[in-house]
């Protein structure tokens, strides 16, 4: 596999005005501003193989957007080197951007008041796409995303999900080698989410497009890829398979128990009590101990009268939350 994206020692600093707080803050800010330096990216290194789908995850403000902006040539890093498909994105911009497509989740690239198809035609000219190639591409996108009825309508009449479909199509009209998706499923309903995920997988398969997506929805990651890059506080914290992380937490189980009668106090050897309300209690396995159903039943029925219980693994969201906590990324 050839490496298509390489990030070497990329650093990015921002100078932002610092707001004072307190009684006279508004006045003080009015007369004199303080600035502070923010290190949005600290020595970021990673590489991505051609044809991969990679999930780029991290809490808000971790540096995801900055990375995407650097990769798409909008921002120049303070120091460091970045080679994408043989180009440095912020140099020879016009040549480079022909190879990429970008979808910024909540910002549209289509015209608000004119039919979507007209915007597509404009993009065709902007990217100098040949007529027959354009036709083929449009046909393919049309079938995959079911755009037929959306294209003649102005963007402002479309629902959020329909807009996203059109955005995706618009960023792929020129068949880019690399596609950057910044939160593509944000705010979408369940059905559209599935459609978008299927489409991303499909494009990756038929065109071999390299796709980098940022998201807060771990189900996107589960559905699309096994490769994740975790960023926090401007640093890469993990770069590898999602399964490895999942396995790390696979031992942890959550057990919910229903008792025949309410108990005042509940204590169970070897298990951690998370919550307890009258006759329902939730336990967690202790670290590095495996869960055995039989042992659990034996242990609990010694003192308590139980009716029912259920055992669950951590959800992907919980795993992510655990991961953030481990790296102390949680906002205080």
């Amino acid at each position: 596999m050839t490496k298509i994206i390489e990030f070497k020692n990329i650093c990015k600093e921002f100078k932002i005005p610092e707001k004072r707080t307190g009684k006279w803050s508004t006045f003080l800010n009015f007369f004199k501003r303080k600035y502070k330096i923010i290190n949005a990216l600290k020595n970021v290194n990673f590489s991505i193989d051609e044809g991969d789908i990679v999930g780029y995850i991290g809490p808000n403000g971790a540096g995801k957007s900055t990375t995407i902006k650097i990769m798409s040539g909008i921002l120049t890093p303070t120091t460091g080197e970045c080679i994408i498909d043989g180009y440095t994105p912020w140099k020879n911009r016009k040549e480079y951007v022909k190879n990429i497509g970008v979808v910024f989740g909540q910002r549209s690239q289509l015209w608000w008041d004119v039919p979507v198809i007209d915007s597509f035609e404009l993009l065709k000219d902007i990217y100098k796409i040949k007529d027959d190639e354009y036709k083929d591409t449009l046909k393919l996108l049309n079938e995959a995303l079911d755009l037929e009825q959306l294209l003649p309508r102005p963007l402002r009449q479309l629902s959020l999900g329909q807009k996203m479909k059109c955005e995706l199509a618009a960023s792929l009209l020129h068949r880019p080698k690399i596609l950057f998706l910044d939160e593509p499923t944000i705010g979408l309903d369940a059905v559209t989410k599935l459609a978008v995920r299927d489409f991303i997988k499909y494009i990756n398969k038929v065109w071999h497009t390299t796709i980098i997506l940022t998201t807060h929805d771990m189900n996107d990651i589960e559905a699309l890829t096994n490769k994740i890059i975790l960023i926090g506080k401007g640093q890469i914290l993990y770069n590898g398979s999602f399964d490895t992380i999942k396995n790390k937490y696979a031992n942890e189980k959550i057990i919910q128990v229903e008792f025949a009668k309410p108990y005042e106090k509940i204590l169970l050897n070897g298990y951690e009590l998370i919550s307890h309300d009258k006759n329902v209690a939730v336990f967690k396995t202790k670290k590095d101990t495996e869960f055995h159903t039989k042992a659990f039943i034996n242990e609990i029925s010694k003192e308590y009268d139980i009716i029912d219980f259920s055992v669950n693994s951590l959800s992907v969201d919980e795993i992510l939350a655990r991961l953030y906590k481990e790296y102390e990324l949680q906002e205080k």
Binding site: T26, F27, N29, F30, F31, R33
Partner: peptide, 11 residues
């Protein structure tokens, strides 16, 4: 009033 004070350069 507070809103207006935000815009130092504007004033």
């Amino acid at each position: 009033f507070k809103g207006e004070l935000q815009y130092r350069a504007k004033a």
